[in-house]
Design a protein around this nucleic acid. Structure first.
Length: 673
DNA sequence: GGTAACTGGGTTTTT
DNA sequence: CCCAGTTACC
């Protein structure tokens, strides 16, 4: 059991003031590395010391990892439910409430939670009917995923479509009308098929809280609400918090407006900055004593950090002076990759484990060249961010099959499942679904009719699969069902993928993981809300003796730290990303993202600026133009760094044309006499 | 009529 | 790697 007095003892004065704050809403403005998590955990402990029941404390976070972390530190793992803090991500908590009262929300009890990829699939099936297909008037229509993004942006920021398109998706402006029609269809489709997307989870929770009857009941479940990373809330989440604690009593928000990096999914640091306006009696406690980084790193961090009136904060170093950040100006990207590898190996030889070193990139593809170089030198690495495990085709296939078993009315899943089979394309798949729907809501009962109506070849591939799934649906335990679903997919997956054996092994892990859930439904929701990053995620922690460099996107690195951090691609267009520069707000967010990246480093920070970029967007008219150093590294910032120049690339090899000519001549003897 | 297989141009970040 | 468009096959 946690030693609660001990939790408070290790805090500094500011942290203790935050943890033991009484009465009225509290904002803890916590700079990077200032012990935010420990303070929040201590506050929960202190509230319980004051006599509050654990189950009446609500802890809201943005990632599952953050929630698990804090809950693990705040309570014993074997505590009873009354002794357990009610915690999770906004979405997971919303789901728990909605699933428990599905009828009250006019949802079918077996409603399916769809992830953004599913939402894009729905958009895809509706786009043709809304004139959003192919190339119109020489302009390519927005991709299905883009349509889903725009929709979500409208919803999560409560902003009109026309404004969202104008500011964030200007190239889609010609299709605004069609998008409006598409979105109407999207909402209708979701309701008709019992689908709930991520935005819906929040919208439904907010609606319930605002409801005259349900609101007071939901509010009265909790005495205290603790919100982590408040700078990342969107308009809906901010309102959920406000509805949970209308007068601010018992509300604690933790955040740092300088680390707001999720505007693209509707978040806005203005919600944090305006807390004072919503709650006149708001107390603000600043945590600025940094326990993570040395003074060299913080010197740079403090000049990059954007300051906002009334919420200024400068980090002070609790650790020693340490090294200055190093800016390595590299001849080109290839040099950059070699330089990173050289420093990784040098630090490794001086005793730093590979896993204590991270490379933080703005976009997943920024590490392409580096990954080749790492592989060539035999340096092991793992990559976080970018493609998720659940986005791999075979995993989506498995999930589609499981969804059909869990909810036979899930047309979206049927569509994917059917199309997996040889000889079945979009038209046949749709026709089969039409046939099945006559028997709605039990399409399985009509399967043999549908199969009989198919041409011989498709029937012979899809028939066995579906008949096995029908059997799987009758099985008792989740584990048996998952295993049977996997078995049903054996033949179609083998026919489709050359590396079917590997993929099939992945699915075994997935089926095993699903077996732990009480129902197939729960397993699927879990997978949607908290997708495993890789197959090894499902298999548990990697072995202790495995050592590897971490490559992560800056976004995925939030909240983490490493002794050594490498930040490549410090070039305008990459950092800051040119995709983000359509608005001044976009540039500001890029700067905050850079701040997040810099503040991940404990001991050593290496920044890399390639001087020459090949195939770069800005260099389209001159493939050898010289790139500009990122605008975040102005003279002040540079004065906080030690600048070095990387060795020029190895001299080019002498042309080997004579050699090639020899080879060609030898070959020619094979067909000349 | 419908599907598979290939080609060529575009690619941020994720609960 | 995704998607639109084309072509060749059933």
């Amino acid at each position: 059991m946690t030693d609660r007095a001990g939790v408070l003892d290790v805090l500094n004065d500011d942290q203790r003031r935050a943890a033991t704050h009484q009465g009225g809403p509290l904002l803890i403005l916590a700079g990077a590395g200032t012990g935010k998590t420990g303070t929040l955990v201590a506050r929960a402990a202190w509230l319980r010391q004051q006599g509050m029941q654990a189950s009446r404390i609500l802890l809201l976070t943005f990632t599952r990892r953050a929630a698990d972390d804090m809950l693990a530190r705040a309570q014993a793992p074997d505590s009873s439910s009354a002794e357990r803090i009610f915690g999770g991500t906004f979405h997971a908590v919303a789901h728990r409430i909605i699933r428990a009262h599905a009828e009250a929300f006019a949802l079918p009890p077996e409603f399916t939670v769809i992830d953004p990829a599913d939402a894009a699939d729905v958009m895809d099936t509706l786009r043709e009917a809304n004139g959003l297909v192919g190339t119109t008037a020489g302009r390519r229509t927005p991709r299905a995923a883009t349509c889903a993004e725009i929709y979500s942006r409208c919803v999560s920021t409560s902003t009109h479509l026309a404004d969202v398109v104008a500011t964030a998706y200007p190239w889609c402006a010609p299709f605004t009308m069609q998008l409006a029609g598409l979105f109407t269809g999207f909402v209708t489709y979701k309701r008709r098929h019992g689908l709930v997307d991520f935005d819906d989870l929040l919208l439904l929770w907010r609606a319930a809280l605002a409801d005259a009857a349900a609101g007071p009941a939901l509010r009265s479940l909790f005495d205290a609400v603790l919100v982590d990373e408040y700078q990342d809330v969107n308009a809906i989440q901010a309102e959920i918090v406000r509805l949970l604690r209308p007068d601010g009593e018992g509300l604690t928000c933790v955040g740092d407006d300088a680390q707001a990096i999720y505007a693209f999914r509707g978040a806005d640091p203005a919600h944090l900055r305006e807390l004072g306006a919503s709650y006149a009696n708001l107390s603000v406690v600043r945590l600025s004593r940094n326990y993570r980084s040395n003074r060299g790193v913080l010197g740079l961090a403090n000049v990059i950090r954007p300051q906002f009136d009334g919420l200024e904060l400068a980090l002070t170093a609790e650790r020693g002076d340490g090294h200055l950040p190093q800016l390595v100006r590299c001849h080109d990207e290839a040099t950059q990759a070699r330089e990173i590898c050289a420093r990784i190996l040098a630090d490794h030889e001086s005793g730093v484990r590979l896993q204590d070193q991270a490379v933080l990139v703005r976009a997943a593809n920024h590490s392409d060249l580096l990954e080749i170089e790492l592989s060539a030198r035999g340096i092991p690495y793992v990559k976080y961010g970018g493609l998720r495990f659940t986005e791999a085709a075979h995993v989506k296939d498995f999930i589609a099959a499981a969804r059909v078993v869990a909810n036979q009315a899930d047309d979206l899943a049927w569509f994917r499942l059917l199309r997996l089979h040889e000889g079945i394309g979009p038209v046949l798949a749709r026709r089969i679904i039409e046939t099945l729907r006559i028997a709605d809501p039990q399409p399985f009962g009509r399967w043999l009719d549908a199969e009989g109506a198919l041409p011989q070849r498709p029937a012979s591939t899809v028939g066995p699969t579906v008949r096995q799934l029908i059997v799987a649906a009758e099985l008792g335990s989740t584990g048996e069902r998952a295993t049977a679903i996997r078995a049903a997919l054996h033949d179609p997956l083998t026919a489709r993928y050359a590396d079917a054996a590997v993929r099939f092994a992945d699915l075994e892990r997935l089926a095993d993981a699903a077996a732990d859930s009480p129902s197939l439904h729960d397993a699927l929701v879990q997978l949607a809300l908290d997708p495993p990053v890789s197959a090894s995620d499902l298999a548990g922690r990697p072995r202790v003796d495995d050592d590897f460099v971490v490559i992560s996107t800056m976004h995925s690195a939030k909240g983490l730290e490493w002794p050594v951090v490498h930040v490549p691609q410090l070039v305008d267009g990459a950092v800051p990303s040119d995709m983000a520069l359509t608005t001044p707000a976009g540039l500001e967010e890029e700067q905050r993202l850079f701040y997040v990246a810099v503040t991940r480093a404990r001991d050593r920070l290496y920044l890399y600026a390639p001087l020459r970029m090949h195939h770069h967007r800005f260099a389209a008219d001159d493939r050898h133009s010289y790139a500009q150093l990122t605008r975040f590294l102005d003279d002040t910032a540079l004065s906080r760094c030690e600048v070095t120049h990387a060795a020029p690339p190895r001299p080019a090899l002498r042309p080997i044309a004579p050699l090639a000519a020899d080879v060609d001549r030898d070959l020619a003897s094979l067909w000349t006499t």
